[in-house]
Amino acid sequence: MFTYPSGGGDVAVHVYGSDFAAAAGLADYVAAAAAAAVAQRGAFTLALSGGSMVKSLAGLVGREDVDFSKWVLYVDERNVPLSSPDSNHAAAHAQLLRKVPVPASQVLTLKEGLPVAQAAVHYEGQLLELSGSVLPRNAAGFPEIDCVLLGVGPDGHVASLFPNRRETAATEGWVLPVSNSPKPPPERITLSMPVLNAGKNVAVVALGQGKAEVVQRALEVQTLPGALPVQLVQPTSGKLTWVLDEASASSLAVADWAAGSKKFPRSENPPKPSA
């Protein structure tokens, strides 16, 4: 059973002139979230996706206004050795973590060699061990991650929450096992949709022409719940931000938004071009 969550009213869409400018904008976004969290309680939690999203974090390298001594965890991870080219941690380490002063002890990684169900339990246990001052819980008992950075696949999946899958519909649990992913490798662990939606600052990062179709569908076409998981990303009390470049935003009818017809997402399909 899929339903759109309550909330989702606070949405921003930022379109940058290039992927380089988008990376700089994303760095500013993370820096602002980190500064607010550290000022409030002396801790900052950042959840990273894998895939192309982590490449967009290049703008964080060399930043002196980001407290990199805080906590990093993963939105999802493949159940493979951490040194594997399929590992999200391996990609994050190569693209970011080895270039910024994040203590290795504060990067929460998958435990290698476990069956996927046990790997999910172990990862959730690591989150549960963090104190409320580091990782607060909301009224429903879900962790309030300060900054959640999501990529989006061509099928609209986020994290390892794929279209019309029971994991995507789950309303309980922090970390879920995925044993037969439609995209290889088949075994993964993932934060649940309620955890993503408990985030304080949630960003969907989609750059390049290859993302144009899914961006247009996600932002301008109402789908059946579950058919496009990224549309289920609707923070309950935080803010959702889309980070795009001109290429990924090229299929959007932004002029219609200015005219007041924009909804998130629009309830009607876009008009078909005349013959």
Rank of each mutant, 00 (worst) to 15 (best):
V61R: 12
P85K: 09
E64M: 10
V80F: 11
R78D: 02
W71E: 02
R98Q: 12
L73S: 08
R78L: 11
R63A: 00
V66T: 02
S87F: 02
A91W: 04
S83W: 06
K55T: 10
K70R: 15
D76A: 06
D67F: 04
L96A: 06
V61K: 13
L73V: 07
V61I: 15
P81G: 09
M53P: 00
D67A: 15
V66K: 02
S69F: 01
A91T: 11
P81E: 09
R78H: 11
L57E: 08
S87G: 07
K70I: 00
K70S: 09
G51V: 00
E64N: 11
S84H: 11
V66S: 03
E77T: 10
P103C: 06
G59W: 08
M53W: 03
S49N: 05
A58K: 15
G59E: 05
S87R: 02
A92I: 06
S84N: 09
K55Q: 12
A90R: 15
K55Y: 12
D67I: 11
A94T: 14
E77Y: 12
A91H: 08
E64L: 12
G51Q: 03
L96E: 08
R63F: 01
D65K: 09
K99W: 08
S69W: 03
G62D: 03
M53Q: 14
R63P: 03
A90T: 08
L97Q: 13
S52T: 13
S87T: 02
H89P: 00
V100T: 13
S87L: 03
H93N: 13
D65Q: 04
V66Y: 03
G62P: 04
V102L: 09
A90K: 15
V54Y: 05
W71N: 01
G51P: 05
L57H: 13
H89K: 02
Q95M: 13
F68P: 09
D76S: 08
N88M: 06
G59I: 10
L96Y: 07
S52A: 14
W71T: 07
L57Q: 13
W71M: 08
S83R: 14
H93M: 12
A94K: 12
S56P: 00
G59C: 09
W71L: 08
V66Q: 02
P81M: 10
S87C: 01
V102D: 04
L82T: 05
P103A: 03
L73M: 15
N88R: 14
N79A: 14
E64Y: 00
G59N: 08
L82V: 05
P103E: 03
A90I: 06
R78K: 13
G62S: 07
G50H: 02
S84F: 05
K99M: 11
P81N: 12
E64D: 13
P101H: 12
